[in-house]
Write a protein that binds this DNA or RNA. Structure first.
Length: 386
DNA sequence: TCTGGGGTCCTAGGACCC
DNA sequence: TCTGGGGTCCTAGGACCC
């Protein structure tokens, strides 16, 4: 059966929420991002984009391009609250809603016609309701699969609705630069450009066998389908997280090994707290280090048993730093800790730390004070990034 | 103007086992 | 005597997304 998939993308979401909450900012260039010396732009309002400011740009450059913009730090708790309103609206049209991030989601409208009318009318109604109930603009794409719906919402920006019918697919994809296709990033776009492939139409003209010789059997097959707008992946609500991580870029490079170890412990404990909060255990511990010259290394280890024990996790993370020569050969600009192999805490191996007193204490502290207040007594562990 | 933080998925190579 | 090939698990790195 033919499907109708809708993709909803909030326009300049973080910046739009700031303009909603602070009327003074409406109609003005707004840049949301980390304000430190190494911050980057998370979202720029359309007024700021007119000056060339865009996501992932260093804040320092944004300040040069648009010095009179309002530069504001992100308020994620507030954005989550607004996103919750939006999800509720989407959920009223279909049980199959798949959030991709805080500000965009797929909705499977297949088979909802009897309840809500034709998909195209539903798209208009949903678009209107989001505007009316949140005060924020969104863009909506509607097509026969996720890939095309996503590209359609891109084409609808800002604030519009774009429908791609089956007979229009080729005409829709042909003129698009390949880098705009979902899944083709800067690297793949460059490789394609070197071979004379610049647009969706160019890509469609390349033989499957040639694509496979360039990108391997899987990569080639994926690009071949991409060029034809083929995608049968389902809309999957509420995926379980497979890993969690926390990393910090420091305003100034770190040099002292005790300080570095202390920071890694701090990150590890914060993650252990998240495990406890979400009642999960982890079996893999990872550390990440990035030196001043931006070279980046990761090390990981499997634990013999899944755990949420903060001291155990912190010890493993620090041990990983020591292994494989991850020492401060020059300044360290970023440290990260990650946990994977997540399983529900109900799988806790009984013979190990039988629901430990520490975990109970941690849960107690978290429920009373939240994770911000959590610091264990490690040497140097009370230093927090400023 | 040096380049965030949170994720997912894929690949390649080595260890290990049969 | 020193050689095969498949399967699986693990690690490190990288592409990509928002």
């Amino acid at each position: 059966m033919a499907r109708w998939i809708l993709h909803m993308d909030m326009d300049a979401f973080f910046a739009a929420v700031e303009q909603l909450d602070h009327p003074m900012l409406r109609g003005q260039p707004v840049v949301v991002g980390g304000l430190g010396p190494r911050g980057v732009v998370a979202t720029a309002s359309y007024e700021a984009r007119a000056f060339g400011v865009h996501s992932a740009m260093p804040i320092a450059k944004a300040r040069m391009l648009c010095p009179h913009a309002a530069f504001v730090p992100p308020r994620f708790a507030r954005y989550e609250q607004v996103a919750g309103q939006v999800w509720a609206i989407l959920a009223s049209y279909s049980p199959l809603v798949e959030p991709l991030s805080l500000d965009e989601a797929f909705v499977d409208l297949t088979g909802t016609e009897r309840l809500h009318g034709p998909a195209e009318e539903t798209a208009h109604g949903l678009h209107r309701r989001i505007r009316a109930e949140t005060g924020l603009a969104c863009s909506v794409g509607l097509a026969g699969n996720k890939l095309l719906a996503k590209l359609a919402s891109e084409a609808a920006k800002p604030g519009g609705i774009h429908v791609v019918h089956e007979q229009d697919v080729e005409g829709f994809l042909s003129p698009l630069p390949v880098g705009r296709l979902w899944g083709i990033g800067p690297h793949t776009a460059k490789v394609l450009a070197e071979r004379g492939v610049h647009t969706g139409g160019d890509l469609r003209d390349v033989d499957a066998s040639l694509l496979c010789s360039w990108f391997g059997p899987r990569g080639g097959a994926h690009l071949w389908r991409l060029a034809r707008g083929l995608d049968d992946s389902p809309v999957v609500p509420a995926r379980e997280a497979k890993s969690i991580s926390q990393e910090v870029t420091y305003p100034e490079d770190l040099f002292q090994e005790e300080v570095i170890a202390g920071e890694v412990r701090q990150l590890a404990v914060a993650l252990a707290a998240r495990l406890v909060e979400e009642r999960l255990l982890a079996t893999t511990v990872r550390v990440k280090i990035r030196w001043a010259d931006f070279t980046t290394r990761t090390r990981q280890v499997q634990l013999p048993e899944p755990t949420d024990h903060p001291v155990l996790i912190a010890d493993e993370a620090v041990a990983l730093l020591d292994r494989g020569g991850l020492h401060a050969e020059s300044g360290v600009r970023l440290l990260g800790v990650g946990l994977a192999g997540l399983v529900p805490a109900t799988f806790r191996p009984e013979h190990l730390f039988a629901p430990s007193a520490l975990t109970d204490a941690l849960r107690e502290v978290l429920s009373r004070h939240g994770p911000e207040r959590l610091t264990l007594g490690f040497p140097g562990g009370d230093r927090r990034p400023s």
